[in-house]
């Protein structure tokens, strides 16, 4: 086995050049939603470049992130929905107090195939009839959604049950987070949904707005009517920001542990840096920034601590 151990050792030596890179003493620990990951990654990258402490970011999902956060394992938790009562209780039990900050908006887009000529808009009620648990195995044709739609088979695509997007959509449309029909093509990877919908003329599905914006040529966006009396609204930067695209736009949050703010100075300066730069960085990675006064309010909140 001598040869083998020497192979191992030389393997270790091989990446010796990295020894010059110094590691900061206590990195900032962040975990949570993969939706917000790109924003937090961008902030962490810039913060590091400006000489700030190192921050590392995981993608355990909103729920998984809170589990760790409430055990005191992380300093900051990314969340694509507000914290749930169950998680508030867990945090209390774990002795973790926190501050909540909104950092950006995300719009959910409902899309169909470009060859779809019949859908000009959908109402929330129609979306509900499409996605409600009771629709399972009964609502299968487009003609069942609205009279006048052709009698074609409806092919549904959506995110899997672990995603915050799924939680948010089901809550906004079906009235209860997590309640959805199960007989649709599910993927945690939104690019898979894009490919599925762009390849199937009878398809309909939903995912984050950024994925539509990057694939405009192979998808058709569906304007949404909140109720029959209102105008149909196309999701865009403007309509999400001014709140007229309802109910499928959502705020994205970070939750910061008070303990970490108190005991790790780097966490406080990181949070401050986050709020000061989130408007530019969130747009850069495909999300929609909050109105400036929201960030100012967050900063004030942090100051008053």
């Amino acid at each position: 086995m001598n040869k083998f151990t020497s192979v191992l050792l030389s393997g270790l030596m091989l990446f010796g050049f990295q020894s010059g890179m110094v590691q900061a003493a206590e990195p900032i620990k962040i975990d949570g939603s993969s939706t917000i990951f790109p924003i937090t990654e961008a902030v962490a990258e810039e913060f590091g470049k400006k000489g700030g402490a190192k921050a590392m970011v995981g993608i355990s999902g909103t729920g998984g992130g809170f589990k760790r956060f409430c055990r005191g394992e992380t300093d900051i938790s990314n969340a694509s929905r507000p914290i749930k009562q169950k998680e508030i209780d867990a945090c209390r039990e774990g002795g973790v107090e926190y501050l909540e900050f909104q950092v950006a908006y995300d719009g959910l887009s409902v899309v169909v195939n470009p060859a779809n000529y019949w859908v000009d808009y959908l109402t929330v009620a129609e979306l509900k009839s499409m996605w409600d648990p009771s629709a399972q195995n009964t609502i299968t044709q487009w003609s069942q959604i609205r009279t006048g739609f052709p009698d074609k088979k409806m092919e549904l695509f959506g995110p899997g049950t672990d995603s915050g997007t799924f939680d948010y959509f089901t809550e906004a449309i079906n009235g209860k987070s997590g309640s959805s029909r199960g007989d649709y093509t599910a993927s945690e990877d939104d690019n898979v949904l894009v490919t599925g919908i762009s390849g199937n003329p009878n398809a309909v599905g939903y995912f984050g707005l950024a994925y539509y914006e990057q694939n405009k040529s192979s998808l058709k966006i569906v304007p949404i009517k909140e109720d029959a009396g209102k105008d149909a609204v196309v999701p865009s930067r403007e309509t999400v920001m001014d709140g007229s695209y309802r109910p499928l736009s959502r705020p994205l949050f970070i939750y910061v542990s008070r303990n970490s703010l108190k005991n790790k100075p780097a966490v406080k300066s990181f949070t401050e840096f986050y709020l000061r730069n989130a408007s530019i960085l969130s747009e850069e990675v495909g999300y929609i920034s909050l109105p400036e006064q929201e960030y100012q309010r967050g900063l004030q909140h942090l100051e008053n601590l």
Binding site: S19, E41, E45, K54, M56, G58
Partner: peptide, 20 residues
């Protein structure tokens, strides 16, 4: 490793075993 909670963005490397 994802279940374990391995990270995705990490701007530093594990401490090198041998340094001068």
């Amino acid at each position: 490793l994802i279940v374990l909670g391995a990270l995705t963005y990490i701007p530093f490397l594990p401490t090198h075993p041998v340094t001068l």
